[in-house]
């Protein structure tokens, strides 16, 4: 299923253990440049942990993470950020006492290598215009609504000039209109050639914009494929709905309900 050329991100045998708990277990995953790929799985499947391993928040207990041709398994978050991995958070984290523009300028400056001052500010404004927040560039970030904060996260992510953008539940808590707007933005981002990994709970989002989907369950990668085949995959159905509703795949540990 991997696309042409060398992969942008390549996980091999990645495991992350917390005490006795294996949050992520032996994951192999290869993401090609330009892909828009969805990472789905029920709550507690280890999606966020996997993102944390990729970005250096957690270090893999075993296995390797290669990005853009180099081994980044042992890098710290700021180093991963400077190499071109940007992420947004499930729980949005702006710098509350800074202005919206300053938030984005920080991303442009520290990860995007813009110079302090006018260059960073100009870039910040440009990204804010793209996500539709230019009007409130000089408001305090703490005063933003949830939907606006999510857009601010996107602007920050873009300002980092990423090669890979990890979107952790960008749509959680948004209403239908807001989700549509966010999807529109994500498509526009992908059109710029940025590789996007969308961590999602909502199937709808994944189905509408991803070219490929991987499914994580109990920390293991149980399926990968295009969106059409994945919803029919009995293991995926079982993981989401419980074994009783899925095909009788006895090798699979099912969840009792949902």
């Amino acid at each position: 299923m991997s696309a042409d050329g060398p992969a942008l991100l390549e996980l091999s045998g990645v495991t992350r253990q917390f005490g006795g708990l294996r949050a992520v277990s032996n994951v192999d995953l290869s993401i090609a440049r330009g892909e828009v790929i969805g990472l789905i799985g029920p709550n507690g499947a280890g999606k966020t942990t996997l993102v944390n391993v990729i970005t250096g928040v957690h270090r893999a207990s075993s296995g390797t993470v290669r990005f853009d041709g180099t081994d980044i398994t042992r890098l710290k978050p700021y180093q991963a950020a400077r190499r071109g991995i940007a992420r947004t958070f499930q729980i949005v984290q702006p710098f509350p006492e800074m202005t919206v523009a300053e938030n984005v300028a920080a991303a442009a400056m520290f990860a995007g290598a813009a110079a302090y001052g006018s260059e960073a500010n100009a870039q910040a404004l440009e990204h804010l215009r793209f996500v539709g927040l230019a009007d409130i560039a000089h408001s305090r970030a703490a005063s933003l609504t949830l939907a606006m904060r999510k857009r601010l996260e996107l602007a920050k992510g873009l300002a980092m000039r990423p090669k890979l953008l990890l979107l952790d539940e960008v749509n959680a808590g948004l209403n239908a209109t807001e989700v549509d707007h966010a999807l529109h933005l994500i498509r526009a981002i992908a059109a710029r050639g940025i590789t996007v990994l969308i961590i999602e709970h909502l199937m709808k989002v994944v189905l509408s914009i991803c070219t490929r989907v991987v499914v994580l369950h109990h920390g293991e990668l149980i399926a990968t494929g295009d969106t059409k085949s994945i919803v029919k995959d009995p293991r995926v159905v079982a993981a989401y709905l419980g074994r009783r509703y899925g095909a009788a795949d006895s090798a699979l540990r099912g969840v009792p309900n949902g």
Partner: peptide, 8 residues
């Protein structure tokens, strides 16, 4: 930690 994520 957000600063760290942004490359600081």
């Amino acid at each position: 930690s957000a600063a760290d994520m942004l490359g600081v």
